[in-house]
Design a binder for these strands. Structure first.
Lengths: 221, 221
DNA sequence: ATATATACAAACACTCATGTATGTAAAGGG
DNA sequence: CCCTTTACATACATGAGTGTTTGTATATAT
């Protein structure tokens, strides 16, 4: 009955997929390893072989999206585009990801509304904090560059713009996942983002709005 | 041993206080009624007398802050002030409440990071959604009034401004509670809010910033 | 003054998840 | 070809929490 190395990796992934489903369904604490095992077509023995406990399962799940997130950040922030454009591109990509990739939505829903960050699970929270801090740092430096180039509108500075966009994006995702936004709201969100970014831009007229294409729609569930 | 009616109400409140403490400490699902009872100086019998189960305990806790929140909304939105000023006042009051009242912070921390909204607990989520919708409706009508009065800056409309501020405030509180902001960040938050509100205001110069007093500080934990 | 409902405490019965220990068949290295 | 390790399945031991039932002293209504 022993599996080959690649088969083993396959069951590992199946366990992770099953864990996502069950975590989303009944929450992390109520999710029994027995149910996850059944959903993955294995026994608890398999889970305990690949992971020490439920906490490590959750961390592995977060790790998978962490990697994808890093890739997006790298792609948008390491180009040679104008700083404000980079930030906008990043925000649009994030919204796009949430609108189109159910997998992304699933995992973040678990993170936001299906887990209690207490005891051992606090380590998982620190993993999120790392992602958060990375994002904040990228915002900060992008807005500083914009400020230095005189591209920030009057009334804003790097710090205030950075923290404002950070809160806006966090709140956007939080509301999205917590209250199950429909496609209609998704459009309003893009409009809000467009207006906000326009207000950051020095000498911004309605011209800046054109860079956001508000006619692409994305459904939620 | 039987208590008088007011004594009974007193123990009810003690149970709620204890539940808050324990929920915050170990999360809603890990919180055993036994531990809550001990913390309140009673037995589980007392809890089951006052509440049907853990879910009703949580709902009662949320209900307490729900009432306070409604009071703040009524106070700020039912006045005769200018619509944008009402919104700003409300936002500042919320930030102030989170900065100064540990109790408010405790309960919202439970709501945001110590509860899994699944199964019976979904009802508790609906309670939040009600609060959220109330807030959104107030924003919407305030910004519509501002738009009608020509007080909204170019680039914004009632819908985009409303959803932007809504996301900003949600994200602000979410980040605050999730990542334990320090007093330094609290200042940046006020600055961000000031800039954002200023950008909403038609013909806004730096004058509008004066209405926010950024020198009042509030610590977190 | 007594009967009843109240406000709990104490005891019981039951489920269910967790961690670990042991079994085992096949993969893969030498 | 054999030995070891891998990749699980199975079995076991244990604890912890929940809902309910029963007991009881006393406030309160009549």
């Amino acid at each position: 009955m022993r599996r080959t190395k690649s088969e083993s990796e396959e069951t590992r992934q199946r366990i992770l997929d099953a864990a996502e489903t069950v975590f989303l369904d009944v929450g992390v604490s109520r999710a029994s390893l027995e149910r996850i095992a059944t959903e993955a077509g294995v026994t608890r023995g398999a889970i305990y072989w690949h992971f020490a406990n439920k906490k490590e399962l959750l961390e592995a799940i977060i790790g998978r999206v962490h990697g994808r997130h890093q890739a997006v950040v790298a792609r948008t922030f390491e180009g040679g585009a104008e700083p404000l454009q980079k930030v906008l591109d990043w925000a649009l990509e994030v919204i796009e990801a949430f609108a189109t990739e159910e997998h992304t939505r699933k995992v973040y829903t678990i993170i936001v509304t299906r887990c209690e960050y207490v005891g051992e699970m606090q380590q998982a929270r620190r993993l999120q904090q790392t992602m958060h801090d990375t994002m904040a740092a990228n915002f900060q430096s992008a807005f500083e560059a914009a400020e230095a180039a005189g591209q920030l509108a009057e009334g804003w500075n790097a710090a205030s713009a950075s923290i404002t966009l950070q809160c806006f994006m966090s709140g956007l995702l939080d509301n999205w996942l917590r209250y199950d936004f429909d496609a209609d709201v998704a459009k309003k969100l893009r409009a809000g983002l467009a207006s906000l970014m326009a207000s950051f831009r020095a000498g911004a007229g309605l011209a800046a709005l054109a860079s956001v294409s508000p006619d692409e729609g994305g459904g939620t569930t």
